[in-house]
Nucleic acid binder design. Structure first.
Lengths: 351, 351
DNA sequence: AAAGACCCATGAAAGCATTTATGGACAGCG
DNA sequence: CGCTGTCCATAAATGCTTTCATGGGTCTTT
């Protein structure tokens, strides 16, 4: 059942059927009604490939995440998918892991599917400096379709980033820990992403402000991101004396924070009395744990809404109206985080 | 840059370029090398729409989940995506929520995108009886593409289900609770899915085997699936005296179980001494909570692997070899669950 | 050694299902 | 009668796959 069949039944040309289907242009009410009737009766749907050939779009956007089984990223995809679907776009999901090589190849694959835009969620190994080779594949992609980044920052033509102000938030959190009397604060991360770098800077800012020394050994990066693996890793480090002593933890993700809590509880430590713990992203883990976890809310929903809005606006702007009646989107939108105080660390300063 | 450009540069016909690109047929080594060289140099990629028009496929599969922010479903998607990507298929993800109407419309949308197959994850309101109207949309879809179900069971032509034996597993778990002396076991669910129904049957089986009465009030369905909402809902029910007393909980998802634990801890109850809790799916929540949660492992990874394997096999069987050298896939593959015993409930029987 | 059979690499062309630019027919109006 | 505007058909364009046909070469046979 294709457009020719419908046209034949209706006694019109395929062009007219096309016009009716696309709702556009001038077709007499009579013809339109008749054609719509036949379409409904015959159950005709335009072939997306043929449409794609003509229009060069299939109304899809590529969404690349390192790990969809991660609560932060699945949350992001959830928000994005909802917004985009509502505007008539569907998501082609690709999970690349954290490897640069694979990210690149996944992006190529997505581009080959003729996506209308590309969304990258988290974990971008960003860089100061325009010509960072680690992000070149992103700029390359941006030459074909607009690229949107959720909590990653890359500068370049046609790249739009939504991120949260991790540096300030982390600084505030650490400031509070220091004010509460903590001296040895472990910065725990599993990533070298832009976001993790910002968080580390915030951590260092706070130490510097308080006149505390910056100890390399207290900035720990482990390559694990599941609760038990984190716990075990800390145990291993502890056994081999590779773990410095600490009285507080700031982790760049709730998973890490919960892993650290598990480690501490295993050692018989009390939280927050013996060890204060602050996590990140305010995910469901922060309330599933016991004690519940103080966590920095990275405003995921807002980031995603902003991204989806911008994307829709950008893609539909070129359509009806040639060139922007609307102002061009900001290349970077920064959201302030908020710290959600729970039992694992108590607020000790006015924020 | 299209196939004509490449053909012109190489001094061959487009047919030859096509043959080179598709790796197939007989092309002389010399020609192949030259064409490949030019393709690489010019950065040519075949247009998927044109390819789709000819082949009627774009190598995508539709994946429909009610809620991608749920750990169980995001886990499923993670496994599926990996396997499918490796075999050259990409996932179009659609999140429908639990509403039947919306599921139907999302499936229609996916079909209109010319997916090669459809995967439905969880939460199918299944039915005994072939002509259940709640699942008609699935059979309808199956008339266009093969349909695969993860932990849902629907019978019909071209529908392949992978599920785990929830009934038996639940029965075993409840048997153990009874053997440990629990008399009032709360069955807690948020769903009326096929899977939830099976679990409830297993619960009833165990009670019946032990000669315990079946109390309606102990089979509680709440329409909440986030930890705090579950906790609050139980609190509300408790306040309004709508909650019977109970000394054990079997929940159809870890989220519910953790919510119940939160409720119990709020009441000052000890787990597992005052209240034993068993969850389902053995998700990360079962180890993020404190005490850690005994949970029934629904073999998600195996279900997904099986599904992906079957899908690939089915889709590639029709291609090279006309009709099955391989046997047709089973319409239903059932996996045995295993119970992972942790602190929230202790194993009291041999299993 | 010559001739016929056969095979292989390749080109020509049909088909896939749409959108859209162009232009024609017809009606209404001055 | 000519102009304008509405509605619609014709045809071109989109970029690929694949079938069929063909020319030239190789192998076999006598």
């Amino acid at each position: 059942m294709n457009i020719y069949d419908i046209a034949k039944i209706a006694g019109v040309s395929i062009a007219t059927v096309s016009r009716v289907v696309n709702g556009s242009d001038k077709v007499s009410e009579k013809t339109r009604a008749r054609v719509l009737d036949i379409i409904a009766r015959e159950g005709y749907t335009p072939n997306v490939f043929a449409q794609g050939l003509g229009l060069n779009t299939m109304h899809t956007v590529g969404v690349l995440v390192p790990d969809i089984a991660d609560l932060y990223m699945s949350g992001a995809v959830s928000y994005l998918e909802e917004q985009l679907h509502r505007s008539g776009y569907e998501c082609i999901l690709s999970c690349s892991g954290f490897d640069l090589e694979r990210k690149h190849s996944h992006v190529q694959m997505l581009l080959s599917k003729k996506i209308d835009a590309l969304i990258l969620v988290g974990s971008t190994y960003a860089g100061s400096g325009i010509s960072n080779t680690q992000t070149d594949y992103i700029r390359e992609a941006a030459s074909e379709v607009p690229v949107f980044m959720i909590n990653g920052v890359v500068s370049g033509e046609n790249i739009y980033c939504s991120a949260c102000d991790d540096r300030t938030a982390t600084k505030e959190a650490v400031r509070s820990l220091i004010a509460a009397g903590h001296k040895k604060i472990l910065f725990l991360t599993d990533s070298g992403s832009y976001s993790a770098q910002q968080k580390m800077k915030g951590y260092q800012d706070a130490l510097a402000d308080a006149g505390l020394p910056l100890e390399e050994s207290l900035m720990l990066r482990i390559h694990k991101n599941r609760i038990h693996m984190v716990r075990d890793e800390l145990n291993d480090l502890s056994v081999s004396n590779a773990l410095p002593s600490f009285d507080a933890v700031l982790a760049t993700d709730d998973t890490l924070a919960v892993g650290a809590m598990k480690y501490a509880l295993g050692k018989g430590l009390r939280i927050p009395e013996d060890l204060a713990v602050i996590g990140y992203n305010n995910s469901a883990f922060s309330i599933s744990s016991e004690p519940e976890l103080t966590s920095i809310d990275s405003r995921l929903e807002d980031l995603c809404k902003n991204t989806a809005d911008t994307l829709i606006r950008l893609l539909s702007s070129g359509k009806d109206s040639e060139e922007g009646d609307l102002p061009a989107p900001e290349p970077l939108t920064l959201f302030p985080c908020r710290i959600v105080w729970r039992q694992s660390a108590v607020c000790s300063v006015d924020i």
